[in-house]
């Protein structure tokens, strides 16, 4: 029986369906020198074809192509037709990031995608300077008070912005560092807690002598799955309030990551603030 290219290729590509087919072809190959030659031609041309494109596979992928894909917007969860993957971490919406965006009109330099996404899910309410909170867990920081929570204190003193610190039931993330109009170093931070209701606090603390950090701004939000839009108006009001607050507080530009690392490494030295010169020591 004549064996055609199609069958020989299926043999070569291991795509025949049963063992008897392989035996049949191998018997034919033993008996037929012409068939052996054809097999060899197919093998060698296949090798050459693979070699002809091997360099393309090994070539570095252009950075622009990778960037275009990494930066592509994902479709909204509703359009995706299956539940969105569980959020890997919870983090507060950064007020200062929004403020910076509004002032500069630029890219979200300090806000991650996760930070932006959460802002539309929850409402905010301002924490009064002193209050008896009724429902939510006691806030980790109140405006006007010193930070006493050890984990937050260590994070304020040593953690670079953008790194979330997982503390079991809580997660602390420093958002951005800047100098205020009183020439103090200040840091915006978020504290997220998981419980019956998700609870997220946002605050700004400024550094005083002897490594004490005082809270100068605090806001809190709670997840309410039943009414995700209920606080939108309040959120807008808070947004304006936060922007006014930051307008009055922030001096110059927030610190870039490298300057911030230098500040952390030097223990937030006062001289840096006055001279604004990391080498001026």
């Amino acid at each position: 029986m004549q064996i055609d290219d199609e069958t020989l290729l299926a043999y070569l590509d291991a795509q025949l369906t049963n063992d008897a087919d392989y035996a049949h072809i191998e018997n034919a190959l033993t008996a037929d020198a012409g068939l052996r030659l054809r097999l060899r031609q197919l093998v060698e041309s296949g090798v050459l074809a693979r070699q002809a494109f091997a360099a393309k596979l090994d070539e570095p992928v252009p950075a622009g192509l990778i960037a275009a894909i990494i930066n592509a917007p994902l479709p909204a969860p509703a359009e995706r037709g299956r539940p969105a993957p569980a959020r890997e971490r919870i983090a507060p919406t950064s007020r200062i990031a929004a403020w910076i965006r509004e002032r500069t009109g630029g890219a979200a330099a300090f806000a991650s995608v996760a930070l932006l996404a959460l802002g539309t899910l929850f409402g905010y309410y301002l924490l009064p300077a002193s209050t008896d909170t009724t429902s939510a867990p006691a806030p980790i920081a109140r405006p006007g008070e010193l930070v006493l929570d050890a984990a937050l204190l260590v994070a304020l003193e040593t953690a670079p912005s953008g790194r979330a610190l997982n503390l079991g039931t809580r997660e602390v993330e420093l958002v951005v560092s800047f100098m205020n109009t009183a020439d103090q170093f200040c840091r915006e931070f978020g504290v997220a807690r998981r419980g019956q209701v998700s609870h997220t606090e946002l605050g700004i603390a400024c550094r005083e002598a002897e490594a004490r950090w005082r809270v100068i701004f605090a806001a809190s939000e709670e997840g309410d799955p039943a009414a995700p839009d209920a606080y939108r108006t309040a959120s807008d009001q808070l947004h304006e309030a936060a922007n006014d607050f930051l307008d009055a507080q922030v001096k110059g530009e927030p610190f870039d990551p490298l300057s911030e690392l230098v500040l952390i490494g030097k223990g937030w030295p006062p001289a840096f603030g006055e001279a604004h010169d990391p080498a001026g020591e």
């Binding site: 290729l9 031609q41 197919l42 041309s45």
Partner: peptide, 9 residues
């Protein structure tokens, strides 16, 4: 594959 084998085999 047949054409390729005929051309470059």
């Amino acid at each position: 594959r047949g054409k390729l084998a005929d051309t470059i085999g």
